[in-house]
Design a binder for these strands. Sequence first.
DNA 1: TTAGATACATACACGCATGTTTGTAAATCG
DNA 2: CGATTTACAAACATGCGTGTATGTATCTAA
Lengths: 216, 216
Amino acid sequence: MVRRTKEQALATRELLLDTAQQVFLEKGVARATLDDIARAAKVTRGAIYWHFRNKAELFAAMCDRVSLPMQAMLDPLMRETGPDPLGRLKRTTIMVLQLAAEDPRARDVFEIMFFKCDAGNPEIASVLSAEADNKRQCIKELKDSLDAAIAAGQLPAALDSGLAAEALNAFVAGLLQNWLARRDFDLAAQAPVLVDMLFQGFAGLTQTKRPPPSLA
Amino acid sequence: MVRRTKEQALATRELLLDTAQQVFLEKGVARATLDDIARAAKVTRGAIYWHFRNKAELFAAMCDRVSLPMQAMLDPLMRETGPDPLGRLKRTTIMVLQLAAEDPRARDVFEIMFFKCDAGNPEIASVLSAEADNKRQCIKELKDSLDAAIAAGQLPAALDSGLAAEALNAFVAGLLQNWLARRDFDLAAQAPVLVDMLFQGFAGLTQTKRPPPSLA
DNA sequence: TTAGATACATACACGCATGTTTGTAAATCG
DNA sequence: CGATTTACAAACATGCGTGTATGTATCTAA
């Protein structure tokens, strides 16, 4: 058939990613056929095999389209140094939850990664384990932020920052997972209160001086 | 071949469940072939098709073998009424984490349900959605417990018990998920401290009277 | 004791998803 | 303006997993 111009080709690539996302969400990654995706996108499998080597690479590209921008968005926020490390960490945490809940693409991809794909296919497993490495790194940065907050007197020195980092990450992951599975509460709206609950726990018995209340 | 007695048949059924669990863990539910399982169990697919209608039913039976006993264990604990509802809730929460971390069967099945199966197969999805209903019910019971703790003066009345129940459930789920994915900290040992973090947050600014410190 | 049910093993048929190969028209480049 | 590459479509080949049907030796009950 008609050969497309470069921009048109890029457009069909995006179309394929969009369509794959949609089909993966409906049928799950394992049962979603490349032909399912091709037909939904009104092309043939030839188009898919032109842009991607196989289903796993298509899946990986779909994930990257969410995780890479998100990483790029979070990185500067985490490295930013200032007088209110605890407030920054809290606001960033809330932002992540709200972004994941409100951005349709991020929301759907997270739902796919949580519920609609298994680690059976080794190439898919490698994508997931890369994501796990991300998490590991993320937890380290969380610990650094918490240490900074301790140093600034915003959290008690008795707090185990490593454990607290695990707790915070688990809390966010769990909230996202539960909300995606049931959607019976307003995650974006309640995120500040929810995050506050755990941060209150970090502060613990030993109440220390507080920064001015953040409006987030 | 030789026909087995009833007990022998039940034994092969258990063997099939054990083996399926193992194979599912290695290859994922979708890529695990019934023949894989049969060969690992040193039988043929005929044995599997005799005891189960298909892979989905085998999967469901494997899940039930963990979730049913666990439910039976938790139910009386949650219904139990006493003078220290907060302590009971906290101890139960810790118990769930420790059980999931230390019981090999529960641990593996949770890992399968979290990471090694997708909701593509509709019959498998129904098992997972049944699990989601369980969670819904669980959250209601958590809210009841929290309300009881508020009534007993162990938590501030200002606490949104519904949200706190969501938070607690998400926290537990997230901890389990993160620990299963990376296994880089001692969940069973740290469970008390971790759970305390969130419960401290529930107590919040308004410190109220406390029950005698639980030894858990 | 024997007739039937049980607990599998074995064999068969089938669709279906994948990967690859070939075809082709238009775009791009020299 | 021609040659080559691009961006797919179409056709081909193949394996693989499932479900089912059939065989069969033992257990069980009357």
